[in-house]
Simulated scan of single mutants.
Amino acid sequence: MQGAIDGFRYGAVTPVAVYLMACLGGALGLRCIVRSLLNEQSWKPGWLALGAASIGCGIWTMHFIAMLGFQVEQTGIRYDTGLTLLSLAVAIVVVGVGVFIVGYRGAGRVTLGVAGVITGMGVAAMHYLGMAAVKVNGDIRYDMATVGLSVAIAIVAATAALWAAVSVRGFLASLGASLVMGLAVSGMHYTAMAAVSVHVHGTGAFAGDSPASLLLPMLLGPVVFLLLAGVVVMFDPLLVLGDGEWNRSPQPAEPVAPGSEGTSSGAPP
């Protein structure tokens, strides 16, 4: 029996929250990457790692907030804890690979393409690992053409985000890039969900806790991390100074001629 899928159980609440979370993770990640590139005294590995973790947590949190609104009318839903956590690790690690590539090698055409493909595949892998964690009284099936489209969107979105990270400088430009990135990432999620169909085995009860009872506690950790990362970014002295101040070095003092100490510029020798 074909299951009736509803991806918007709570109406517009989950899509709006999904978009905002994707934008938050993208904004924090982009600012951390820009911070590592525009100041040579920065601890680059630390800032790149914080950026990768912010983007990864933002994408993962976005996905499972969206899944709170996912239901199949003929069956309950459970989640495999191990696969759910593994999808978070994959998101952070694979996004980190792409971030470190562009952070150390720049945004050359080949480098950006390789990093974008790796990062996009990581985003897609996170999504489908997260879907593999979904347990229903039936079989979850996918339309492969739509799956391919979702992967392509993930790669394009990742490439654009990495390009923005090494090319965009101002705060407002970074904010605009994060808004576009949030739209692309959340669009990738709902495109991928459009590929899903469920063949239900029967109408019997499917025992287990509600999805919210598992997902909400697991979402707490990444959300707290993103809030702490936001505090770090907001109160970093170099970010507070502004982009124009980052690489401004103090002007060297003019040399003083021997024996001229204490004489004014207009006084006779």
Rank of each mutant, 00 (worst) to 15 (best):
A52W: 03
V34C: 09
Q41P: 10
P15V: 01
L37R: 13
L20I: 08
A27E: 08
S42M: 15
P15W: 03
G51H: 15
F8Q: 04
V16E: 04
L28G: 01
V13P: 00
G25K: 04
L38F: 06
W47K: 06
A53N: 13
M21L: 13
I33R: 09
T14K: 04
G26Q: 06
I33E: 01
I33T: 04
G51T: 11
T14H: 02
P45Y: 03
A17Y: 07
S42V: 14
C32M: 15
K44P: 09
A12V: 11
T14C: 07
L24T: 01
W47H: 13
L48Y: 12
A17D: 00
V34W: 10
V16Y: 00
R35K: 12
A22F: 03
Y10V: 08
L24C: 08
V13L: 14
V16S: 01
K44D: 03
S36Q: 13
G46T: 09
Q41R: 15
A17F: 07
L48V: 14
V13E: 06
L28E: 03
G7L: 07
C32D: 05
L38A: 10
G7K: 02
L50P: 10
N39C: 12
W47S: 10
A53H: 07
L30W: 04
G25Q: 02
V16A: 06
L28N: 08
L20V: 12
G26A: 13
Y10E: 02
A12F: 04
I33M: 15
R35T: 12
G46D: 10
P45R: 02
A53Q: 06
L38N: 05
A22Q: 00
S36K: 11
Q41I: 14
L37K: 12
L28S: 02
G25H: 06
V16G: 01
L28A: 03
F8L: 15
C23A: 15
R35P: 09
L48G: 10
Y19L: 12
S36T: 13
L37V: 12
G7W: 03
N39P: 02
G46R: 10
A27S: 13
G46L: 15
A52G: 11
A12E: 00
S54H: 11
Y19S: 04
L50T: 09
Y19G: 03
Y10T: 04
L38P: 00
T14I: 07
A17T: 01
W47D: 13
A27D: 09
P45D: 01
E40R: 15
L20S: 05
R9K: 10
R31V: 10
V18H: 04
A17K: 01
C32Y: 09
Y19R: 00
C32Q: 14
Y10H: 11
V18L: 08
E40M: 12
L28C: 03
A53C: 15
G11W: 00
L48Q: 13
R31T: 05
G11E: 05
L37C: 12
V18D: 06
G51L: 09
K44E: 08
R31H: 13
A52T: 06
R31E: 11
G46I: 08
